[in-house]
Write a protein that binds this DNA or RNA. Sequence first.
DNA 1: AGCAAAAACTAATAAGTGTTAGTTTTGTGA
DNA 2: TCACAAAACTAACACTTATTAGTTTTTGCT
Lengths: 196, 196
Amino acid sequence: MAKIVTGKNSSKKEVILKKAATLFKTKSFSASSMRELADVVGVEAPSLYNHIGSKSELLQDICFKIGNQFTEQIESIRNSNKTMVAKIEAVIRFHIEIMAENFDEVYVANHEWKHLNEPYLTDFLTIRRSYEKSLMGFIEEGINKNEIKPVNPYVTVLTILSAVRGLEFWQRNKKNVPLQVLENDMVNQLLNGIVK
Amino acid sequence: MAKIVTGKNSSKKEVILKKAATLFKTKSFSASSMRELADVVGVEAPSLYNHIGSKSELLQDICFKIGNQFTEQIESIRNSNKTMVAKIEAVIRFHIEIMAENFDEVYVANHEWKHLNEPYLTDFLTIRRSYEKSLMGFIEEGINKNEIKPVNPYVTVLTILSAVRGLEFWQRNKKNVPLQVLENDMVNQLLNGIVK
DNA sequence: AGCAAAAACTAATAAGTGTTAGTTTTGTGA
DNA sequence: TCACAAAACTAACACTTATTAGTTTTTGCT
């Protein structure tokens, strides 16, 4: 009889969630079967149900864990007293850092949220939209305070968020480009451009 | 007996491909069934096989049609005699335009390529990597010619490509933000930044 | 009109899906 | 050591999957 090996501070459900995130990232949610997940966990598929409710629940847990993490961070930046440019810079930086730490989960939340069931789907999109609005507020206020050029705030948010999401592709080059270089260069390009 | 309705210049296979791209974009490749595709085409599932080889073949056709389109465009830009900055700008602009025209196909190529079978998977990644290398060449040459700040070329390519890919999220706001505004603002931010 | 090819149909197959039921084994505290 | 709960197991269910075989209908050409 196999046994789920739990690390020091993690419950069995957390172990399953972690492996699920990796599997869903690699194969996508729909193409991943509970039998495959059970395999990497080291157990038979039905045994998983002693610890989790359903396959969908796994996706929900992953998406909302990440969603809340981002929401908390941007709230705390909003309540800080930095210049608007500094706030935007802080957003870019924590985005990169959360991504570097919880890569698989962030990837899954970004790519597989559409397989959430209602009402989770609607909730998730609400959270995400409110996040985008916060960032858009920073841009607008930055323009008003004359820190930022009179750009279209929506396009700017789109550009920034897409750029940081692109870190998904970075992982295969982790060794060649250190995190600090990445963060600095990306912040610089998005804020100051690359043209001399 | 239902009949596949073909437009003026499109074969029945092309009709199926177009609908498949839309379906795969909406539901993802793995979560889309041939029965669903048949439904939107207006036919029974087995009838599709009079026109196509398999489900995987649909994905292959979509991915390589888009892949080749991008490759051709960047080749033609490479062979033009523009400044390097102008070449990079041209890349950003055609990216946005291809995306605006063939939205569903580009989306599928970007998101569902991992479900390609070998040897198509390897081929696709090779094409993509060579595309990235071309763009990276523009950056490096731009730095050498003193047109561009001494940035990390890899990070810069990553930032640019991710930013333009983010247009996926733009569609829901098509009405509010015209294509030209989008193109200009995005080019501007990526090349010149947003900070005053 | 009649014949051949194209393209639709129905029926069926084998494999894979998430999940439940019922049972057995394991780990823990008295 | 014994009992109880936690967590593993096997077997099975009801569905869905892509695809094939075989048949019938439609289309287009002479």
